[in-house]
Simulated assay, not measured.
Amino acid sequence: MKIAVVSDIHGNLPALEAVLDDLAREAPDQIVNLGDCVSGPLWPEETAAILRETGWPTVRGNHDRIVVSDKPLPRRTADGFSALLLSEESKAWLRSLPATIRLSDDIFLCHGTPTLDDVYLTEEITGPKGHLPDEETILEALAGEQSPIVCCGHTHIPRVVRLSNTGQTILNPGSVGLPSYDDAHPLKHKMEIGSPHARYTLMQESPSGWSFSEKVLPYDWDKAANKAAKNERPDWARSLRHGFFGPLS
């Protein structure tokens, strides 16, 4: 059994297309999507149209939830930009996504944590950047979820974490479409992977257990950065072009 795990596409169509090309070569038995599909100053509707047709098991990310909420969204925000461009079909699809998916007895899918879509599971914020939480913190965030493998996204930072006391493995595949960003929740911080590549993870079962392979793919990130700049988001443009969140242009 080989499963491809994608997450945090954020409307980055050329990054998604690069992943789709790679998936065609890898030919996994199943592909799953951990959410935050369209939010961003890029190609939200075009991305949603492709994802709707894939039929991949997909969980709802926090931005997927916000994009189709009833509250007013300023156009300059990533969510507000996307909400204006999404078709009714794409909005209905986003509303239909479940908060979590139990893929099998062994595999559980969520965006943030099993109970909260806007809380990090594999990063902890106590300063200007994220870092790996201790095992007790991860266990608390799991809130009793006992699946041997828990797949989560939200942080955009790829990790494979094995909990020594339960034997559970936590997989975060990183982000297909956004390699760095800043946020003010729970306090001001940056998350950055340090390269502009599109990322996803393959997990494969063998008699000795599951193995995990991070895929790091080149694509036309200048095209994505130019699109963000055209849509008045130079911060996204810097992130997409460099993988760091900072002053480079």
Rank of each mutant, 00 (worst) to 15 (best):
residue 52 R to E: 14
residue 53 E to H: 01
residue 54 T to G: 02
residue 55 G to D: 13
residue 55 G to C: 10
residue 55 G to K: 08
residue 55 G to L: 05
residue 56 W to T: 01
residue 57 P to A: 11
residue 57 P to R: 04
residue 59 V to D: 00
residue 59 V to F: 03
residue 59 V to K: 02
residue 59 V to G: 03
residue 60 R to F: 00
residue 60 R to W: 00
residue 60 R to A: 04
residue 61 G to V: 01
residue 61 G to N: 03
residue 62 N to D: 08
residue 62 N to E: 00
residue 63 H to R: 09
residue 64 D to Q: 02
residue 64 D to S: 01
residue 65 R to P: 00
residue 67 V to K: 03
residue 70 D to K: 11
residue 70 D to W: 08
residue 70 D to L: 13
residue 72 P to K: 14
residue 72 P to E: 15
residue 74 P to C: 13
residue 74 P to D: 14
residue 75 R to A: 15
residue 76 R to D: 14
residue 77 T to Q: 12
residue 79 D to T: 15
residue 79 D to C: 12
residue 80 G to L: 06
residue 80 G to S: 12
residue 82 S to Y: 08
residue 82 S to Q: 08
residue 83 A to G: 02
residue 83 A to V: 01
residue 83 A to F: 00
residue 84 L to V: 00
residue 84 L to E: 15
residue 84 L to R: 08
residue 86 L to R: 01
residue 86 L to K: 02
residue 87 S to L: 07
residue 87 S to V: 15
residue 88 E to G: 02
residue 88 E to H: 04
residue 88 E to P: 01
residue 89 E to Y: 09
residue 90 S to I: 12
residue 91 K to C: 07
residue 91 K to A: 12
residue 91 K to W: 09
residue 91 K to E: 12
residue 92 A to M: 04
residue 92 A to I: 03
residue 92 A to E: 12
residue 92 A to L: 06
residue 93 W to D: 00
residue 93 W to G: 04
residue 94 L to V: 07
residue 94 L to K: 05
residue 95 R to L: 13
residue 95 R to G: 07
residue 96 S to C: 05
residue 96 S to R: 09
residue 97 L to C: 13
residue 98 P to K: 14
residue 99 A to I: 05
residue 100 T to M: 04
residue 100 T to Q: 10
residue 100 T to Y: 03
residue 101 I to D: 07
residue 101 I to W: 14
residue 101 I to Q: 05
residue 102 R to M: 08
residue 103 L to M: 08
residue 103 L to H: 10
residue 103 L to W: 04
residue 104 S to E: 15
residue 105 D to F: 01
residue 105 D to W: 04
residue 105 D to S: 12
residue 105 D to T: 08
residue 106 D to T: 11
residue 106 D to N: 14
residue 107 I to Q: 09
residue 107 I to T: 10
residue 107 I to A: 09
residue 107 I to M: 12
residue 107 I to D: 09
residue 108 F to T: 09
residue 109 L to F: 04
residue 109 L to I: 09
residue 111 H to R: 07
residue 111 H to A: 07
residue 112 G to A: 12
residue 112 G to R: 03
residue 112 G to D: 06
residue 112 G to S: 13
residue 113 T to G: 07
residue 113 T to N: 06
residue 113 T to D: 10
residue 115 T to Y: 08
residue 115 T to G: 06
residue 116 L to K: 15
residue 116 L to A: 13
residue 117 D to G: 00
residue 117 D to I: 03
residue 117 D to A: 04
residue 117 D to S: 08
residue 118 D to E: 11
residue 118 D to C: 05
residue 119 V to L: 13
residue 120 Y to S: 11
residue 121 L to C: 12
residue 121 L to A: 06
residue 121 L to F: 12
